[in-house]
Simulated assay, not measured.
Amino acid sequence: MDGVVTAVSSNGTYSFTKPNRERVTLLAGLGVEGDVHAGVTVRHRSRVAQDPTQPNLRQVHLIHEELFTELAGQGHQVRPGELGENITTRGIDLLALPTGTLLRFGDVDGGAVVEITGLRNPCRQIDDFQDGLLKRVVGRDPDSGEIVRKAGVMSVVREGGTVGPGDAVHVELPAHPHRPLERV
Score class of each variant (00 low, 15 high):
147 I>D: 12
66 E>G: 15
125 Q>W: 12
23 R>C: 02
16 F>E: 06
61 H>V: 00
85 E>P: 01
69 T>D: 15
175 A>W: 04
55 P>H: 08
30 L>S: 09
38 A>H: 08
141 D>R: 10
71 L>I: 11
95 L>D: 04
128 D>T: 12
12 G>P: 07
133 L>A: 11
85 E>V: 03
147 I>V: 15
101 T>Q: 10
102 L>Y: 09
94 L>F: 01
177 P>M: 13
73 G>N: 10
38 A>E: 11
35 D>P: 06
65 E>A: 14
106 G>D: 13
22 E>Q: 14
88 T>A: 12
94 L>I: 03
184 V>P: 07
175 A>G: 09
177 P>T: 12
121 N>V: 09
112 A>H: 10
82 E>W: 07
15 S>R: 13
40 V>A: 15
156 V>G: 01
139 G>L: 09
59 Q>R: 06
1 M>A: 14
87 I>D: 02
58 R>Q: 10
117 T>I: 02
178 H>F: 14
135 K>R: 15
16 F>Y: 12
32 V>C: 03
30 L>H: 03
97 L>C: 06
92 I>P: 03
165 P>Q: 08
83 L>R: 02
22 E>T: 13
8 V>P: 06
93 D>T: 09
14 Y>E: 10
117 T>R: 09
124 R>N: 07
167 D>Q: 04
47 R>E: 13
40 V>P: 00
63 I>F: 01
165 P>C: 07
43 R>A: 03
156 V>N: 00
161 G>P: 05
40 V>T: 14
111 G>A: 11
133 L>W: 08
133 L>D: 06
172 E>Y: 11
31 G>S: 04
144 S>P: 13
6 T>V: 15
16 F>C: 04
31 G>L: 01
117 T>E: 05
64 H>A: 14
166 G>D: 12
133 L>V: 09
34 G>Q: 03
5 V>R: 06
173 L>F: 08
54 Q>S: 10
72 A>L: 15
134 L>H: 04
15 S>H: 14
101 T>N: 11
138 V>F: 02
98 P>Y: 11
117 T>N: 06
69 T>P: 08
5 V>P: 07
168 A>P: 02
126 I>H: 11
84 G>M: 04
91 G>P: 08
162 T>K: 13
24 V>P: 01
137 V>L: 10
120 R>E: 06
23 R>H: 08
73 G>K: 09
89 T>I: 05
179 R>S: 14
126 I>D: 02
80 P>F: 06
80 P>D: 05
160 G>N: 08
134 L>P: 00
15 S>N: 12
23 R>T: 10
152 G>V: 08
